[in-house]
């Protein structure tokens, strides 16, 4: 176990990299599309497109989305490294969820906030950027940090398209050394701090940076 440990560190870094890049990309898509979705009227065709996209992402397993990205991208003439195919697949997946998160957060802000901003003479764009979004983003934090740990776990599935991340690396070491139990334990031990660390960051953001009142009570006995 100690001998293979260093061999798993570069793949661990790949896991972190692929999840972090996808998280940031998906956050940008989610925030912009989700905010737009909250303000557009129901009859706008853009809303249909977004709803269809969100439904598609939520109703299909991530492994199918990853296979689809892997097999379909070359067909459309886009040839990318497996790493970037992985980033695209994870972003595609996470953006669907984050659009919903952003939409729900923006819609949960009291209507009076927008109206008051308009009454004070702020333009629509300024009202959104200066009044509504700062409040909405605060409400999005718990759900988005949840997405962070989801993405780390989903990145393990990228092993099926031969991206050499933590799970794939451990798998190929298993195939050569036949030390199944040791490598699986090691994997679990490497993933756990990543994800527990992610939820630690989440709690720090929630309580110390954004100051959720009574958040600790709301979370129960953790």
């Amino acid at each position: 176990m100690i001998k293979v440990f260093p061999k798993l560190l570069p793949p661990l870094w790949v896991t972190i990299e692929v999840s972090a890049i996808s998280l940031v990309l998906a956050m940008m898509i989610g925030l912009s599309c989700g905010t737009a979705r909250a303000f557009l009227t129901r009859r706008n065709p853009l809303v249909w497109v977004m709803d269809a996209y969100v439904g598609l992402v939520r109703c299909t397993p991530i492994i199918v989305q990853i296979y689809a990205a892997y097999l379909l991208l070359p067909k459309t003439g886009i040839r990318l490294d497996v790493f970037w195919v992985g980033v695209i697949a994870l972003t595609f997946n996470s953006a669907g969820y984050q659009i919903e998160i952003a939409r729900a957060a923006v819609q949960s802000i009291d209507k009076g906030q927008g109206e008051a901003a308009a009454a004070l003479g702020l333009r629509w764009w300024h009202a959104v950027r200066l009044v509504i979004l700062p409040q909405a983003i605060k409400r999005m934090i718990p759900a988005v940090t949840n997405e962070m740990s989801h993405l780390i776990k989903a990145s393990a599935v990228l092993s099926v398209i031969t991206l050499f991340e933590l799970h794939k690396a451990a798998n190929s070491l298993q195939a050569t050394s036949f030390k199944f139990v040791e490598l699986l334990t090691l994997q679990a031990l490497l993933y756990l701090p990543l994800i527990l660390g992610a939820s630690r960051i989440a709690r720090y953001l929630e309580t110390d940076v954004f100051g959720f009142e009574g958040k600790r009570d709301a979370q129960g006995t953790r």
Binding site: S149, I152, K153, A154, S155, A156, V157, S159, H167, N171, F180, V181, L184, Q187, A188, Y191, L192, I195, L196
Partner: peptide
């Protein structure tokens, strides 16, 4: 509970797959 929530599902599936015969 922390284990099932903190380890990727794919890894848990491999663990069961290899551990059950053991």
């Amino acid at each position: 509970v922390e284990f099932t929530r903190g380890v990727p599902q794919l890894v848990q599936i491999s663990i069961i797959y290899f551990a059950l015969p053991r």
